[in-house]
Design a protein around this nucleic acid. Structure first.
Lengths: 127, 127
DNA sequence: TCTTGACTTAGAGTGAACTCCAAGATATAA
DNA sequence: TTATATCTTGGAGTTCACTCTAAGTCAAGA
């Protein structure tokens, strides 16, 4: 699969695919004799995984480290798992924080236009 | 309250406070005779609101528009509410998407180190 | 054989959101 | 009054995560 096809399949631009590979955010993609990338199932799987993780806001740094550990083989399994757990916990906290903001926003919306502007003023945005 | 105190109270740097005011992300802060900012309760409330919204990923553009409408008075109430509703809906979708990612991440973590690597490979990251 | 189009690399450019800086005004303490 | 600290502005600089460009290679079709 060429980089163009891989881009279409994953929805990640060819430029970004090259960039991700360059910085180690996805493992090296297999090449043909003339050095042209030939994306296989595993490559596509990596791209989709990374796309999903980036979409959830996981830091590029953590993902690069994760990919690097994967390349080193089975002995890094524990460290890899630890990275995922750490990032999972951060994501969980982030979701909880967003949910609190959603509640406040809903409260503000529900009270809009009513005469109880006092209620809105009492929302504590910093908490 | 000086800009330094406002910065300490809200956790937003003085530079960022000036920047936010400059681009209209918070309404003009009252000044004393010599032009120095004197943050009052309302200013602090605005900063905390904006900080909360930005923390939840609401776009600066939408918030600038919201603030501008607020300045125009009661007649813009409906448009303001519409902005909040639109952004609330986006936030809700974002939370749902993050929750799906969290589930996948948990699944991957739970199966780490077990012999069922097949299970992990079957996670569909693009969906 | 020539053209077309897709690929390669290294490196420059971009936009968002700050963050810092210079030069000058003002305020407080010794 | 002098020193120190904090404020002001406009504008330059920084970082991140791409995104684009230039110069060149390579493969397929007319």
């Amino acid at each position: 699969m060429t980089i163009k096809e891989a881009s279409q399949v994953t929805g990640v631009s060819a430029d970004t695919l090259r960039y991700y590979e360059r910085i180690g955010l996805i493992p090296a993609v297999p090449r043909n004799e003339s050095g042209i990338r030939n994306y296989d199932e595993a490559s596509i799987g990596w791209i989709n995984f990374i796309k999903c993780m980036r979409g959830a806001g996981l830091p590029i740094e953590a993902l690069i480290e994760y990919v690097a550990l994967c390349k080193e083989g089975d002995k890094t399994e524990a460290s890899r798992k630890a990275i995922l757990i750490e990032q999972r916990d951060i994501l969980q906290q982030r979701i909880e924080s967003l949910q609190k903001t959603l509640v406040k926003l809903n409260y503000k919306i529900d009270n809009y236009g009513h005469l109880n502007q006092e209620a809105i003023k009492n929302i504590k945005w910093n908490e």
